[in-house]
Amino acid sequence: MRARQASRGARRGREFEAFVAGAAGRLLHTATLLTAEAPDANPRARRLLTRALAHTYAAWGRLRGEDPYDRTRAYLALRFAHRARHRYGARGRAGPAPGSTLAHLTPRERLVLALRLYEGVAEEQTAALLGLPADRVRTLCDRATATLLHPPRPRAPEAAGAEAAGAMTRRPR
C-alpha cells in the first residue's frame, strides 16, 4: 500500500515538473505583462506565478481531465485582479515600471489585454472568468489597445518648470 502511494506521488511530481517545464515560461511572461514590470526584473510577476503554480500543484490529483494550463492561468488572473483591486483601488494605475508602455494602463485593462491578445482567451471566457459583461471586456480591450497604439504624451519639462516659477512669483492676497 505504501509503495503504491509513493509511486503515485513520484508520478504526480514528474507530471507536474513536465507541466512546469513546458508552461512556466509563457505563464511568467503573462504575469510580467500583468504586473507591467521589466522582463529581467520582475519579482512581483515571479511571486504571482509561484502562487499560481503552487495552487495548481495542490489540486493536481483532482484535475481529472481539466487542462492544468487553463487552471493555472485562471488562478493567475484572478489573484492579480484581487491583489490589484486591494492595492491600487478599482481605478488605480500601477506605477511599477515608469518606462513601460503597459504602465499607462489600469490593472484591469492590462488583465483583459493580456488574456485576450497574448493568451488568446475568447471574449466570453474572459468575461466569465472576471465576472464582467462581455461588452465591458470588449470596451476595456479596445481602450487598452488604443492607449498602447497612442500612448499619452509626457508632460513637457519646460511647461512644468514655468508653472512652478509662476507659482513662486505670485503674491499672496
Rank of each mutant, 00 (worst) to 15 (best):
R2P: 05
A3L: 12
R4Q: 15
S7P: 00
G9D: 06
G9S: 08
R12S: 00
E15T: 02
A18G: 07
V20H: 04
V20F: 05
G22P: 01
G22I: 11
A23G: 05
G25P: 14
R26G: 04
R26H: 07
H29V: 01
A31I: 08
L34S: 06
A36D: 05
E37W: 03
A38N: 09
D40P: 01
A41M: 04
A41N: 07
A45T: 03
A45K: 02
R46G: 06
R47M: 10
L49K: 14
L53C: 10
H55G: 10
Y57A: 09
A59V: 10
G61E: 15
R62A: 13
L63N: 13
Y69F: 11
Y69D: 09
D70I: 14
R71C: 10
R73E: 10
A74R: 15
Y75C: 06
Y75R: 12
L76N: 03
L76Y: 03
A77L: 02
L78I: 05
L78R: 12
R79E: 12
R79Q: 08
A81V: 03
A84R: 03
A84Q: 01
H86M: 05
H86L: 05
R87N: 04
R87H: 03
Y88C: 01
G89P: 03
G89W: 02
A90P: 03
R91V: 09
G92C: 03
G99A: 09
G99D: 03
S100I: 04
T101N: 03
A103Q: 09
A103M: 05
L105Q: 01
L111C: 11
L111N: 08
V112S: 05
L115M: 09
L115E: 04
L115F: 05
R116M: 07
R116F: 07
E119W: 07
G120V: 04
G120E: 04
V121Y: 06
E124K: 06
A127W: 01
A127Q: 00
L129W: 06
L132W: 09
P133C: 02
A134N: 00
R136V: 05
R136P: 01
R138N: 04
T139K: 11
C141G: 12
D142S: 15
R143C: 01
A144K: 06
A144E: 07
T145G: 06
A146P: 06
A146Q: 11
T147G: 03
P151C: 00
P152V: 02
R155A: 13
R155V: 13
R155I: 14
A160Q: 14
G161V: 15
G161F: 14
E163Y: 09
E163V: 07
A164E: 15
G166M: 14
A167T: 10
R170L: 11
R171M: 00
P172C: 12
R173K: 12
R173E: 11
